[in-house]
Write a protein that binds this DNA or RNA. Sequence first.
RNA 1: GGGGCCGUAGUCUAGCUUGGAUAAGGCGCCAGCCUGCGGAGUUGGUAAUCCCCGGUUCAAAUCCGGGCGGUCCCGCCA
Length: 624
Amino acid sequence: MLKTAADIIAQAADIGADESLDLLEVPPDPALGDLATTVAFALAKHLRRSPVQIAAEVAERVKTAIDAEPLFERVEVKGPYINLFLDRAVVARFVINAISETGPSYGRTRDFEGKRALVEFPAVNPSKPWHIGHARNAVLGDTLCNVLEMVGFEVIRLDYINDLGLQIAQLTWRLMDGDLQPEKGEKYDHFLGRVYVDIQRDFESDPAVERAVREVARQLEIPDSDEARFSEKMVSECLKAQCQTAYRLGIYHDYQVWESSIAHSGLLDIAKKMILKCPSVMILQEGEKAGCIVAKLDDLEEFKGMKDPYKVLFRSDGTRTYTGADLAFQMWKHQIIEDPFRYVEFEVQPNGKPVYRTTLEGHRHDLGKVDLVFNVIAAAQAHPQRLIYNILELLGYKRESENSHHIAYEFVGLEDTEFSGRKGTWIGYTVDDVLDRAEEIARIEVEKRNPDASDEFKNRVAGQVAVGALRYFMLNASPDRKITFRWDSVLDFEGDTGPYLQYSYARAQRILERAGDEGEGGDATLLVTPYEFALVKALSRFPYEVVQVVRGLKKEVRGTAFSSNRLTEYAFEIATLFSKFYDNCPVLKADGDLRRARLALVRAFRDTIRNCLQMLGIPVIERM
RNA sequence: GGGGCCGUAGUCUAGCUUGGAUAAGGCGCCAGCCUGCGGAGUUGGUAAUCCCCGGUUCAAAUCCGGGCGGUCCCGCCA
């Protein structure tokens, strides 16, 4: 449609087709037209004549051209703007046919078929329950995967489990003797989180505690120590509890890479040997960093003139820094380093698929080469992420460096405080707490509308509404903007929210149910009211919107922006247009052909919003 | 000191990449639509120096320069 319009205008105004496409826009009010071109402004410059005059002349030539083009009905000039009107009947038939032919796969494209992507998220420490900040990461990551799959990518969903961190050492130290146990009914991740906040006080005030914990941390690095064995059980149990939260949100993974595997599989040694071959990596002989393996950053244009250009990858005692481990991990993700991991099944997820974890004993898996790697990490980590990608380039892996993406997002905070693991300010704001509370509120609403339904139904729908509300809330905010958590906005199910979308689907579904099997086919050329046509036009944009978001995944200084909000915005737009159509165009009460035509439009909307919701991970609810 | 991000009605946000018609939406508030396919809806109204100053341009919320305010980041830490 766009292309046809652009070609006609290009002919009429004597400009290039690409330029013409750039000059196309959608008028602010549909009454002005469906498409507009600002070509008159562009020409006014060279021709040194009034754009209004030029518009009139170009429009004359456009007018004769569209007489031969069934897609367009007429052209109008409004000052310097040339506005095109689509032939509603022709477009409606075209769009509705296209959607009904593809149905469940409408929105899927093959733009990136054959490409593979690896996405890491959310990498929560296995020492506490997920709080709502983690939910932002997880929901963004999961939705990114869905979106990539929509455009043809094969996606590997990966989680990183830091089972060797200081937090784990603290918990191991405190819990190993077994005198502390979860309270009755307490989820294990919540239990650890509670204990962890307690330990913090002692750890920070009592040097003896700190020494003891450091010793445990050292023991954890030894694979068969008592500490390591206890810790593995503790971490597994915590992770299983955390997974329950993930599953509530509809989030699943393919693999977990545990830090202990990175440490003991030989990955680090291989990486160390490989990077030492690079001229920009060296062991410093003197200075404050003597004995460290460092990357010399000012060999890169970007870091020219740094005071201290040396970034430590391995300390003088031979141990890895975060950057060092992360670099090795990133090399592994790109399969620059041959996979040293063994894998075992961690558990079977509710979606029926197993998630595998890395171990030292188990079988090998071939993950294969990937084209793109995405790390979903807070925006605050932009600098360390960039370092890793830059060092990758220093090592000679330019392509892998370019194909490494940091999906950056801002924190979720409270009105006056940030979430802090140490201070325990997250207490009361775990994902479980938020979902529980949202479910309670949703349950009241479901009860109001379906007093006679079963408890099973009410609870299920309340859960789906709660998840829909939370996921939408996270996705609808532009990732580079901080979210201030307020209960009333998460618990709001009206207006620009997830439940509104779910409701619009349920409404459409009810109409179709009541219509039964009748009304197949139908003559879409009857759909010419502004309400119907606005919906038709919007539905036709779905595949384009998805591809646009993927094309928008470009590298920037701050990381790679993923405009999840464009997708929620689109979903909200079609749901709103459907509501307006619903209020203005009776479907079941219409007669004959018109009824069948409108049913076809409802079906097209239903298919589109369903595919959209699935992509966003918002539960599709048949009745609510 | 250097760098990133943010600043838009009472409030929360979208739009900024690629300049274009009356700055869009949610919440709030006011007034309608329930003997209409489900009111988690819809119609109308209210409400903005688009942080400030300057520049580029026929045209700036959008691009450029300089400020101001908020926030994050720049360790052999984790």
